[in-house]
Design a binder for these strands. Structure first.
Length: 199
DNA sequence: GATGAGATCCTC
DNA sequence: AGGATCTCATCA
Protein backbone atom coordinates (compact mmCIF):
# COMPACT_ATOMS: atom_id res chain seq x y z
CA UNK A 1 0.00 0.00 0.00
CA UNK A 2 1.12 3.52 -0.81
CA UNK A 3 2.27 5.52 2.20
CA UNK A 4 -0.39 8.17 2.99
CA UNK A 5 0.31 11.86 3.38
CA UNK A 6 -0.12 11.51 7.14
CA UNK A 7 3.03 9.38 7.30
CA UNK A 8 5.16 12.31 6.15
CA UNK A 9 3.63 15.17 8.10
CA UNK A 10 4.76 13.89 11.51
CA UNK A 11 7.25 16.06 13.39
CA UNK A 12 10.08 13.71 14.40
CA UNK A 13 12.34 13.47 11.35
CA UNK A 14 14.95 11.32 13.12
CA UNK A 15 12.30 8.75 13.96
CA UNK A 16 10.88 8.96 10.44
CA UNK A 17 14.29 8.34 8.87
CA UNK A 18 14.44 5.03 10.75
CA UNK A 19 10.91 4.05 9.84
CA UNK A 20 11.73 4.59 6.17
CA UNK A 21 14.14 1.65 6.26
CA UNK A 22 12.29 -1.35 4.82
CA UNK A 23 9.85 0.83 2.85
CA UNK A 24 9.90 0.70 -0.94
CA UNK A 25 10.52 3.56 -3.38
CA UNK A 26 9.28 3.45 -6.95
CA UNK A 27 9.59 5.75 -9.92
CA UNK A 28 7.80 5.64 -13.22
CA UNK A 29 10.04 7.56 -15.62
CA UNK A 30 9.61 7.30 -19.40
CA UNK A 31 6.89 4.77 -18.71
CA UNK A 32 9.27 2.35 -17.02
CA UNK A 33 8.79 1.16 -13.45
CA UNK A 34 11.90 0.93 -11.27
CA UNK A 35 12.35 0.65 -7.54
CA UNK A 36 13.43 -1.24 -4.47
CA UNK A 37 13.67 -1.32 -0.70
CA UNK A 38 15.23 1.56 1.21
CA UNK A 39 18.23 0.36 3.21
CA UNK A 40 20.01 3.60 4.12
CA UNK A 41 18.78 7.10 5.09
CA UNK A 42 19.93 10.31 6.72
CA UNK A 43 17.82 12.79 8.70
CA UNK A 44 18.12 16.55 8.22
CA UNK A 45 16.38 18.55 10.89
CA UNK A 46 15.40 21.83 9.28
CA UNK A 47 16.35 25.28 10.48
CA UNK A 48 18.26 24.17 13.59
CA UNK A 49 20.52 21.65 11.83
CA UNK A 50 23.81 23.11 10.64
CA UNK A 51 24.08 20.41 7.98
CA UNK A 52 20.69 21.25 6.48
CA UNK A 53 20.35 23.47 3.42
CA UNK A 54 17.58 25.34 5.25
CA UNK A 55 19.76 26.11 8.28
CA UNK A 56 18.93 29.52 9.84
CA UNK A 57 15.82 29.77 7.68
CA UNK A 58 17.82 30.03 4.48
CA UNK A 59 15.41 30.38 1.59
CA UNK A 60 16.53 30.16 -2.01
CA UNK A 61 14.91 28.93 -5.16
CA UNK A 62 16.49 25.57 -4.38
CA UNK A 63 15.46 25.22 -0.72
CA UNK A 64 12.02 26.81 -0.99
CA UNK A 65 10.34 23.43 -1.35
CA UNK A 66 11.73 22.24 2.00
CA UNK A 67 9.36 24.53 3.88
CA UNK A 68 6.37 22.93 2.22
CA UNK A 69 4.19 20.41 4.03
CA UNK A 70 5.67 16.86 4.11
CA UNK A 71 5.02 14.25 1.46
CA UNK A 72 6.87 15.71 -1.52
CA UNK A 73 10.28 15.20 -3.13
CA UNK A 74 13.25 17.56 -2.81
CA UNK A 75 15.73 16.91 -5.60
CA UNK A 76 18.90 18.99 -5.98
CA UNK A 77 22.23 18.89 -7.75
CA UNK A 78 25.45 18.35 -5.78
CA UNK A 79 28.90 19.03 -7.16
CA UNK A 80 27.29 20.01 -10.43
CA UNK A 81 26.81 16.37 -11.35
CA UNK A 82 24.59 14.25 -9.15
CA UNK A 83 20.95 14.63 -8.25
CA UNK A 84 20.14 13.65 -4.67
CA UNK A 85 16.67 12.45 -3.69
CA UNK A 86 15.13 13.70 -0.45
CA UNK A 87 11.78 13.20 1.21
CA UNK A 88 10.27 16.33 2.75
CA UNK A 89 8.60 15.77 6.13
CA UNK A 90 6.81 17.65 8.90
CA UNK A 91 4.21 20.41 8.58
CA UNK A 92 4.40 23.61 6.56
CA UNK A 93 7.14 25.96 7.73
CA UNK A 94 9.36 23.18 9.09
CA UNK A 95 12.16 22.40 6.62
CA UNK A 96 12.82 18.78 7.64
CA UNK A 97 14.02 16.20 5.10
CA UNK A 98 15.25 12.62 4.82
CA UNK A 99 17.99 11.83 2.30
CA UNK A 100 17.60 8.40 0.74
CA UNK A 101 21.15 7.05 0.36
CA UNK A 102 20.71 3.48 -0.85
CA UNK A 103 18.11 0.93 -1.94
CA UNK A 104 18.05 -2.79 -2.58
CA UNK A 105 16.90 -3.18 -6.23
CA UNK A 106 13.61 -5.00 -6.78
CA UNK A 107 11.95 -4.10 -10.09
CA UNK A 108 13.27 -2.62 -13.34
CA UNK A 109 16.78 -3.98 -12.85
CA UNK A 110 17.37 -4.13 -16.62
CA UNK A 111 16.52 -0.46 -17.00
CA UNK A 112 18.63 0.51 -13.99
CA UNK A 113 21.65 -1.28 -15.47
CA UNK A 114 21.08 0.56 -18.75
CA UNK A 115 20.88 3.95 -17.06
CA UNK A 116 24.03 3.23 -15.05
CA UNK A 117 25.92 1.84 -18.04
CA UNK A 118 26.59 -1.41 -16.22
CA UNK A 119 26.63 -4.91 -17.68
CA UNK A 120 25.70 -6.93 -14.61
CA UNK A 121 24.13 -6.32 -11.24
CA UNK A 122 26.55 -5.31 -8.48
CA UNK A 123 26.08 -3.58 -5.11
CA UNK A 124 27.19 -0.23 -6.51
CA UNK A 125 24.15 -0.14 -8.83
CA UNK A 126 22.13 1.75 -6.23
CA UNK A 127 24.47 2.12 -3.20
CA UNK A 128 24.93 5.86 -2.73
CA UNK A 129 22.60 8.83 -3.19
CA UNK A 130 24.07 9.94 -6.52
CA UNK A 131 24.02 6.60 -8.31
CA UNK A 132 20.64 5.70 -6.84
CA UNK A 133 19.09 8.71 -8.55
CA UNK A 134 20.66 7.75 -11.87
CA UNK A 135 19.30 4.21 -11.58
CA UNK A 136 15.79 5.42 -10.73
CA UNK A 137 15.84 8.16 -13.39
CA UNK A 138 15.45 10.90 -10.75
CA UNK A 139 16.35 14.45 -11.74
CA UNK A 140 15.04 18.00 -11.42
CA UNK A 141 11.79 17.16 -13.18
CA UNK A 142 10.78 15.42 -9.94
CA UNK A 143 11.55 18.52 -7.82
CA UNK A 144 8.49 19.01 -5.66
CA UNK A 145 6.76 15.88 -6.93
CA UNK A 146 3.91 14.57 -4.77
CA UNK A 147 4.99 11.32 -3.10
CA UNK A 148 1.42 10.06 -3.16
CA UNK A 149 1.35 10.60 -6.94
CA UNK A 150 2.30 8.43 -9.91
CA UNK A 151 5.81 9.63 -10.93
CA UNK A 152 7.57 8.79 -7.66
CA UNK A 153 6.04 7.24 -4.56
CA UNK A 154 6.68 5.04 -1.51
CA UNK A 155 5.01 1.83 -0.44
CA UNK A 156 4.71 -0.06 2.80
CA UNK A 157 5.01 -3.80 2.19
CA UNK A 158 5.02 -4.75 5.84
CA UNK A 159 8.74 -5.46 5.76
CA UNK A 160 9.56 -4.85 9.36
CA UNK A 161 13.13 -3.92 10.24
CA UNK A 162 13.49 -4.54 13.98
CA UNK A 163 15.34 -1.79 15.81
CA UNK A 164 18.07 -4.28 16.69
CA UNK A 165 18.83 -4.52 12.95
CA UNK A 166 19.23 -0.78 12.48
CA UNK A 167 22.74 0.65 12.68
CA UNK A 168 23.45 4.35 13.24
CA UNK A 169 26.37 6.65 12.64
CA UNK A 170 27.35 10.20 11.71
CA UNK A 171 26.16 11.56 8.38
CA UNK A 172 28.41 11.52 5.33
CA UNK A 173 30.09 14.50 3.69
CA UNK A 174 28.96 17.24 6.08
CA UNK A 175 32.20 18.09 7.89
CA UNK A 176 31.31 21.75 7.56
CA UNK A 177 28.45 21.34 10.07
CA UNK A 178 30.69 21.61 13.15
CA UNK A 179 29.15 19.88 16.21
CA UNK A 180 26.12 18.78 14.19
CA UNK A 181 28.45 16.69 12.01
CA UNK A 182 28.71 14.28 14.95
CA UNK A 183 24.99 13.61 15.32
CA UNK A 184 24.25 9.91 14.68
CA UNK A 185 21.55 10.62 12.14
CA UNK A 186 22.57 8.17 9.42
CA UNK A 187 20.66 4.90 9.55
CA UNK A 188 21.14 1.67 7.66
CA UNK A 189 20.11 -1.98 7.74
CA UNK A 190 22.85 -3.94 9.49
CA UNK A 191 24.73 -6.33 7.24
CA UNK A 192 22.79 -5.41 4.10
CA UNK A 193 25.14 -5.47 1.11
CA UNK A 194 23.24 -2.72 -0.72
CA UNK A 195 24.25 -0.09 1.83
CA UNK A 196 26.75 2.47 0.51
CA UNK A 197 30.36 2.11 1.51
CA UNK A 198 31.17 4.56 4.26
CA UNK A 199 34.35 6.44 3.73
C1' DG B 1 31.32 40.15 -11.32
C1' DA B 2 34.59 36.80 -9.07
C1' DT B 3 35.51 33.20 -5.94
C1' DG B 4 35.04 29.18 -3.00
C1' DA B 5 32.75 25.18 -1.43
C1' DG B 6 29.49 21.54 -1.45
C1' DA B 7 24.32 15.83 1.64
C1' DT B 8 29.29 12.38 -4.81
C1' DC B 9 31.48 9.00 -7.57
C1' DC B 10 34.95 7.26 -10.73
C1' DT B 11 39.62 6.70 -12.36
C1' DC B 12 44.45 6.99 -11.92
C1' DA C 1 44.75 12.24 -4.92
C1' DG C 2 42.13 14.67 -8.33
C1' DG C 3 38.53 15.90 -11.63
C1' DA C 4 33.82 16.87 -13.23
C1' DT C 5 31.24 21.54 -13.32
C1' DC C 6 25.87 23.45 -11.16
C1' DT C 7 24.00 26.45 -7.47
C1' DC C 8 24.42 29.44 -3.87
C1' DA C 9 26.75 32.61 -0.26
C1' DT C 10 29.94 36.03 0.34
C1' DC C 11 32.59 39.80 -0.95
C1' DA C 12 33.76 43.51 -4.06
Amino acid sequence: MKLPKSFYTRPDVVQLAQELLGKYVYTCVDGILTGGMIVETEAYSGQNDKACHAHLNRRTKRTEIMYHEGGIAYVYLVYGIYHLFNIITNTEGNADAVLVRAIEPEVGVEEMLLRRGMASIKPNLTAGPGVLSIALGIDKKLYGADLTGSAVWLEDKNTNIPSASIATGPRIGIDYAEEDALLPWRFWVKGNKWVSKKK
